[in-house]
Amino acid sequence: MGRITLEKVQKKFGDVEVIPPLDLTIEDGEFVVFVGPSGCGKSTLLRLIAGLEDVSGGEIRIDGKPATDLPPAKRGLAMVFQSYALYPHMSVRKNIAFPMKMAGMSQEEQDEKISKAAEVLNLTDYLDRRPGQLSGGQRQRVAIGRAIVREPAAFLFDEPLSNLDAALRVGMRLEISELHKRLETTMVYVTHDQVEAMTMADKIVVLRAGNIEQVGSPLELYKTPRNTFVAGFIGSPKMNLIEGDIARKHDARTIGVRPEHLQVVDSGGTFTGKVGVAEHLGSDTFFHVHLDEMDEPMTVRAGGEVGLSHGDTIHLSPQPDKIHRFDDRGLRIA
């Protein structure tokens, strides 16, 4: 069981309020991702849940029991750090065994759990190596193994993939998702990468400056971003946010259109501009289009083989039902 409830949780460093009072419920078995730009307080929030930082106010409950004043070890949570935080002088086996040794578990029980975890994580051949002899992905798996054997109420991941190269990151992403499906344990995952958030999460929590901007499933956030920040943060490439006369025509301060909801038309269209940089990905082509009415170029997703090149004139028209409208405060107009 791993239901985590935050009630009016607040964190101050001196006079600086990093996290204003905040409420959040993480249901048992859920994969929750905290996402936001760097410095938004997502790691601090995770450390508050872990108990590595003390809250300045409010209450944390784990499975209904108050955990605010419990030391980290007593909360029944396991954490995977960005730097892996493996013990360099211990073999992989001893690293994984460490939490069980600290809990005073019998040797047979330890061995059984180690071999089980090693099997799940493909580490059986590496058990007697030192962390220094492993690759980044293997180290990450050892760190996860050390977390698994504790059979925690919830796993906490602090940007676990940001030290890995791109290819490995995709692989580990799948492995962690797979692990979640298999263990069905609550996982709280912090990242600044919205692709990781979209692909892995059951529930995404978008944070900005310690405030929760929106909570919802990946598709909810994609389809109905609550404000311009979430609209710009979720989705890749970014949503085009347009102000001015065009927006006023839609009775809004700002309108947003995702690159994939713009169509290239032969003539007419809502927007007309000149093609700037074109990014050819094979399956898709992203055009950066310079419009007269806007300073920022607009991004458009077109098919793989569109015969347009730098400097050509392009006509675009958005799908009418996919236009997001935002008011003066940047909030969504339903």
């Binding site: 070890a73 730097s83 013990y87 460490f98 939490p99 050390r146």
Partner: peptide, 15 residues
């Protein structure tokens, strides 16, 4: 000494 290691040990229940 990497402070993450100390924190990891703390979470692992080490006194």
């Amino acid at each position: 000494l990497d402070s993450d290691q100390m924190e990891a040990a703390e979470m692992d229940g080490a006194s």
